[in-house]
Nucleic acid binder design. Structure first.
Lengths: 200, 200
DNA sequence: CGCAACATTGCACGGACTGCACCTTTCGCG
DNA sequence: CGCGAAAGGTGCAGTCCGTGCAATGTTGCG
């Protein structure tokens, strides 16, 4: 399927560039690192860098566009007996588990770096937003609504992104000692209850 | 208070630059317009452009940082008898009304242009995100929670942003014939009900 | 009026990103 | 095995963005 020396090498240099970008930025800050630096550490020419990422910022965030549609696909594949919220919770449980388990400590490092650079946060949000657009379509299809005029699909998609981001934020705040899936699930509990003020 | 020829002139050129950017981009696309073009249409030197906006994209979006903390301040000023959600709804009602009433058709044009350029959407989201951070603090203060470990303040702040963005999106989809405050309020109804699947 | 503060501008520079042309490597196939 | 086609890697030249600095106007105030 994905075999072939060519494919594997591309994946490898892509990852190398991403990790080089992350480490260097963690060390010297976003403005203290140039594309040339990143390319040098990944052992490719500066020009090649742009064959892999359209932007320096994208290399730091390092999320491929292919992963974007994933959430929407998984949502669409859930049994029709589930309510939209139930289905989304299930999708997020899977997604959160994958993020927490990912090889290396990639996500922690990513989140730490992104947290220190608002520009990168915006970039991450852009990725989420694009995923949410696809998700809104899937929600509309499931509920018989329409993305344009009806608020529901857009709202639920946006809220799901909020839940996930919120979980990631709390995960970072816990210094990655908490369980990401548990945090995301907690957020969904609050949402499903209609956002009541927490009892103190 | 804000009088003084100097202040007014600054505001004027700022607005001129913003409108020039908006119109030109609406006409030629984001990549078809350079900073020099924008500065030329606003009758200032290209160098001066950067005294007003740190970035070309920011000039197109054209929202000043001062407006960012506004939502949090208004939220904090709401009577303590209101629940967080009630208070937020009230703040949004005001904010939505202001946006819909703004002089000229600024918001419609803005939204149309932003809708066509994902980069600008990211920029807008960044503004929202920064407002949400301030809001999260205010929510935490009101509910006796803490932004770091507790999910509630971050979640509610993010969700409120989602509601507003969602209203704006539907407003755009209606070609600005619908009532923005009504759309935002509708989103809040769904949120307060725990996001139930819409009846068909 | 005259001075101090502030805004505008030009200049020069470094870095991001792109189109193009050329070279090297991999792949598919006989 | 080897050859031709396809695709990736690289260098070059160029455009535009964004910034620090220094010079030049403009405004406000005593």
């Amino acid at each position: 399927m994905t075999s072939g020396l060519r494919e594997r090498k591309k994946l490898a240099t892509r990852l190398a560039l991403h990790q080089a970008a992350l480490q260097l930025v963690a060390e010297h800050g976003l403005d203290g690192v140039s594309v040339d630096d990143i390319a040098a550490r990944a052992d490719v020419s500066p020009r090649t860098f742009f064959n892999y990422f359209p932007t320096k910022d994208d290399a730091v965030v390092g999320i491929d566009a292919s992963a974007v549609g994933q959430a929407a696909e998984r949502f669409a594949a859930r049994p029709a007996s589930e309510s939209p919220v139930e289905a989304l919770r299930a999708v997020h449980a899977l997604q959160a588990a994958e993020m927490a388990d990912e090889p290396e400590t990639l996500w922690p490092l990513r989140l730490r770096v992104i947290d220190e650079h608002p520009v990168l946060l915006a970039r991450l949000h852009a990725v989420f937003a694009s995923a949410e657009r696809a998700l809104a379509e899937a929600i509309a299809a499931r509920t018989g609504t329409t993305v344009g005029p009806d608020v529901y699909p857009t709202l639920l998609a946006a809220v799901s992104g909020a839940a996930l981001r919120c979980g990631l934020h709390a995960w970072l705040a816990s210094d990655f000692t908490a369980s990401l899936p548990a945090l995301v699930d907690e957020a969904w509990d609050v949402l499903a209850a209609g956002l009541p003020a927490p009892r103190r």
